[in-house]
Design a protein around this nucleic acid. Structure first.
Length: 486
RNA sequence: GGUCCUGUGGCCGAGCGGCUAGGCAGUGGUCUGCAAAACCAUCUACAGCGGUUCGAAUCCGCUCGGGACCUCCA
């Protein structure tokens, strides 16, 4: 399996396409990151975990990937009704903090969550406030191209003029005429000439928490312009992959396309990828519905929705059992099921290390490991990948039980590929432990004593040892060729 | 109201014209001092109604249900 076989579903065309990087072997990828006005919830994390998976697999295929994920730390005042919706400023006022204090606070948490869920750091995590100048420059270009207008210190994108040269709605499939009918009565008194116009720069209010200077007066950048400015700066006018949550498709990504075309004359990305929503009882997890929970609540077991704590690995694995383009329902039951499956996989990987090779293999190991690549190269199909990995699990267990065999070559192949896909692609964290030599020698002694008891059919003693160890979290399993612990 | 997605067995979740994934749970075995695990076998499916086709969960139409976006949102 190689780079040429990779297929990716492109939201722009609505179909899977063979992926062709703009430059051979190199990929520029931009993913819309979080707005840090509160702690990211599990739904937010799903998107980032999915793009982490995609990033990881692209690396495995040997691409040189530049992965840019922004941090939105500027409040945006872009509501079409003209209302103030500066979420960061609002949170700051409520906490009697400054805007960047709020952002910093939640950024620390976000970075910790990245670690917790074993996400690789992007190549760059640029911030909106660090790129005000770049945003102003893009806006100036759009104005110079006659596709934006200034009203009372604010700048708006002129969707009607834009539509004469470009197709507004190309990504989301929306048509301006249809949009018009629905919203015509919403907000009549508005600075905007046309309801679909959106703010590139918004004049500040006296009580704004953050204000920047611009050629048009003091104000705030519009919501969409930061992504255009930063993606252009770090990846160029057109790059390979632009990703984000499904809910950003319209208007955010649509407007990004308009801004890039309007300023630079070209669409920012050749491939658009959208990760689908995490759901609770069939409904999108969201702040406003209140059906969300925080990543730490589930790991610590403090959420009422879950009867016990679940490890980040289990949560991540459970996400990998759903496709990134499908909605995923998370529940106590689904995590319990994933936890058992996860343990099964991990046990098999441990068993694989101890497996001894036979003369030949009773199954086609090469075809099996190739199926891992086939699954992932088909639009990152992790449910198929995990299904195929469980085929490997089954075979490992059969070998262990003496009902199947594996050759030395195949054993090495399976070891390297299964480990690669488990840890490097799915991004499950290797569990530490087992490296403590002192514990290992103590356990050898304890298990020897227990074995003596078992030989003497002294079940009271042997069970006492097993139960006692269980209290310390050490599980003892009596197998055919001796006792395992872990 | 508009645009789009979706409805798979007890649960989660793939497949998207033929060969009926996978995980969890259930049932019956094997193994086992017991336990746990594992292995083998097995049972529950493609919302409904029509149509296209030699053949449909998979394509088309209608009906019913669920959801997303259209306003900040991962």
């Amino acid at each position: 399996m190689n780079q040429e076989n990779l297929k990716i579903y492109n939201s722009l065309s609505g179909q899977k396409e063979i992926f062709k990087p703009i430059q051979p072997n190199r990929i520029g990828m931009y993913v819309c990151g979080p707005t840090l006005y509160s702690e990211p919830h599990m739904g937010n994390m799903r998107t980032f975990i999915n793009f982490d998976l995609i990033y990881r697999y692209l690396l495995i295929l040997g691409f040189d990937v530049k992965y840019v994920r922004n941090i939105t730390d500027a409040g945006h005042i872009t509501n079409s009704a003209g209302d103030e919706v500066d979420s960061i400023g609002k949170a700051a006022k409520a906490a009697q903090m400054q805007s960047l204090e709020i952002v910093y606070k939640y950024n620390v948490k976000f970075q910790a969550l990245q670690n917790l869920y074993n996400m690789l750091p992007p190549s760059i995590e640029p911030t909106a406030t660090g790129h005000i100048q770049e945003q102003i420059e893009i806006i100036e270009k759009i104005i110079a191209n006659g596709l934006a207008y200034i009203v009372n210190g604010s700048v708006y994108f002129d969707v009607k003029s834009y539509s004469e040269k470009f197709q507004y709605g190309i990504l989301s499939g929306r048509k301006i005429d249809e949009l018009a009918e629905e919203t015509r009565d919403l907000n009549a008194q508005n600075e905007k000439r046309f309801f679909a116009d959106f703010a590139l720069w918004k004049k500040s209010n006296p009580d704004d928490m953050q204000i920047w200077y611009s050629p048009w007066g003091d104000g705030n950048p519009g919501w969409h312009i930061e992504c255009t400015a930063m993606s252009t700066k770090y990846l160029g006018p057109t790059f390979d992959i632009h990703g984000g949550g499904m809910d950003l498709k319209f208007p955010h990504h649509e407007d990004e396309i308009a801004q890039s075309c309007g300023a630079l004359g070209c669409s920012p990305a050749t491939v658009w990828m959208h990760a689908n929503m995490l759901e609770v009882n069939g409904q999108k997890m969201s702040k406003s519905l209140g059906n969300y929970f925080l990543p730490m609540e589930i790991v610590e077991g403090t959420s009422e929705l879950f009867e016990k704590p679940f490890s980040p690995n289990v949560i991540r694995f459970s996400m990998m059992q759903a496709h990134y383009r499908s909605t995923m329902d998370i529940s106590n039951e689904s995590l319990l099921a994933s936890e058992k499956g996860y343990n099964r996989l991990m046990d098999a990987i441990k068993s694989l290390e101890r497996l001894s090779a036979g003369k030949e293999s009773s199954i086609d190991v090469k075809a099996l490991t190739e199926s891992f690549y086939t699954a992932m190269s088909d639009d990152f199909n992790t449910p198929i990948l995990t299904a195929n990995m469980f085929e490997a699990v089954k075979h490992i267990n059969s070998c262990k039980g003496g009902k199947a065999t594996i050759s030395a070559t195949d054993l090495e192949l399976l070891k390297s590929e299964l480990n690669r896909f488990t840890f490097d692609v799915l991004g499950l964290k290797k569990e530490e432990g087992g490296s403590d030599n002192r514990l290992a020698s103590v356990m050898d002694l304890v298990l020897e004593l227990r074995q003596n008891a078992r030989t003497n059919k002294d079940w009271t003693t042997s069970d006492q040892i097993r139960d006692g160890l269980a209290k310390s979290g050490i599980v003892v399993k009596d197998g055919k060729d001796g006792t395992e612990w872990g």
